[in-house]
């Protein structure tokens, strides 16, 4: 189904208000212009594809973070109230209450850049300039003890930064619980005793019905 129109045809299509139809069976849609794509195509991958030109230092990021992020995430990315903690938590992933942060849990730095650029600040999304995104990203790296205070993150050095927990991610091994091939489930006299071991009401966490 893949057909490559000539360069001239692509150029022409981009100039027309009502462009030639799509390449598939239905002839629907019109060609997207490079400007249209550039405005929306902001995603960034771990290999650096999608990174814009720019740079930002830890110091610059600290200023922006204090102004635009700290009211929820705290001055040191420690989190305020129930808002996400972004720094610390190293070595807690096996604990009963793991603290999953950029430094302790996230596998890739590109995720942070991509997310900040598209979704932050909360309530004023897509307002940050590329340099500001680089700077906030650099600041969060520093808060997680991954770079020094004088570090500057750039498009060029971006992929040299690896996050410490990357190797701890595995592919999905499910199904990981028994199926019929390991025997039909018991139907009669399956247990001798059944005791209640825990009650939800004891925890008193159920919201009241709406009044």
């Amino acid at each position: 189904m893949s057909r490559s129109p000539s360069a001239a045809a692509v150029l022409l299509a981009g100039l027309l208000v009502v462009a030639p139809a799509g390449a598939g069976d239905f002839g629907l849609g019109r060609q997207a212009t490079p400007e249209e794509i550039a405005g929306w195509d902001i995603d960034v991958r771990p290999d650096g594809q999608g990174l814009p030109d720019g740079k930002g230092s830890v110091a610059m990021g600290e200023t922006i973070f204090a102004d635009k992020c700290a009211s929820c995430h705290g001055d040191f990315a420690e989190g305020v109230g129930r808002w996400p903690v972004l720094a610390g938590g190293h070595g807690t992933l096996k604990n009963p209450r793991p603290v999953k942060t950029v430094g302790s849990y996230w596998p890739y730095l590109s995720t942070l850049f991509d997310f900040i650029a598209r979704a932050k600040p909360f309530g004023d999304a897509k307002s940050l300039k590329s340099d500001e995104v680089y700077a906030i990203t650099a600041f969060l790296l520093h808060m997680n003890d991954i770079v020094d205070a004088d570090f500057e993150l750039t498009r060029q050095n971006f992929t040299s930064i690896r996050l410490p927990n990357e190797a701890q991610f595995t592919d999905d091994p499910r199904p990981d619980t028994p199926g019929l091939d390991e025997g039909t489930p018991c139907m009669k006299d399956c247990k001798v005793n059944v005791e209640i071991t825990m009650r939800a009401r004891a925890l008193n966490v159920t919201p009241a019905a709406s009044e």
Binding site: P46, L93, K100, W106, Y108, F115
Partner: peptide, 15 residues
């Protein structure tokens, strides 16, 4: 390649 977005790394991964 996959993008490894926030909602498939920081969240929606099973510790």
């Amino acid at each position: 390649q996959p993008w490894h977005t926030r909602e498939e790394t920081s969240k929606y991964t099973d510790l």
